[in-house]
């Protein structure tokens, strides 16, 4: 399936799925946080899509909008197509259900996003820091992160 057909077909799955407004070079959809595991399960299991691999899981800090965008990069070995699934969560209370029951690799990917952005994954079996020290305070990839070690560029 090419980009437009795939995006339209994924949007047909559920009424809560809508295409991403930004221009993406691959098919991209936005889903609600509560519906995420169910939709990813359908995308993984239905033979039309068969997204067997979660390539990557990243987060974007949209500080102006007060939102985190969580992006799940899916890939299908069978059909050789890609899909971005985005979830928007509020910055004040970033909570999203875990998908590591569907994709075991998500366990560490979610730990990484928790480590650097502080997104809380509900029902995650082992939500610890992955890269930073266990006693690190704060989440350094948030746009408003500051600590004593950081240097500002002199004007």
């Amino acid at each position: 399936m090419d980009r437009e057909t795939l995006q339209a077909a994924v949007c047909q799955l559920d009424s809560s799925i809508r295409p991403l407004e930004e221009n993406a070079d691959r098919a991209a959809v936005v889903v609600e946080a509560a519906a995420l595991p169910a939709i990813l399960r359908r995308l993984r299991d239905e033979p039309e899509f068969s997204f067997a691999q979660l390539l990557d899981h990243v987060a974007v800090d949209w500080i102006d909008r007060g939102q985190f965008e969580l992006v799940y990069h899916l890939y299908s070995f069978k059909h050789k197509h890609f899909l971005f699934v985005s979830v928007f969560v509020p910055r004040e209370d970033p909570r999203v259900p875990t998908v590591c029951r569907l994709y075991p690799v998500a366990e560490w990917q979610e730990r990484e996003v928790y480590d650097l952005f502080g997104v809380l994954y509900e029902d995650h079996p082992d939500l610890r820091r992955l890269f930073l020290e266990d006693d690190w305070i704060g989440f350094p990839l948030r746009k408003d992160y500051q600590d004593d070690f950081m240097l500002d560029r002199p004007r």
Binding site: L132, P140, Y145, D147, F149, M150, L151, D152, R153
Partner: peptide, 10 residues
């Protein structure tokens, strides 16, 4: 990485 880095040793 000298500016705005939380982890790089200078």
């Amino acid at each position: 990485f000298i500016y705005h880095s939380y982890t790089t040793v200078r």
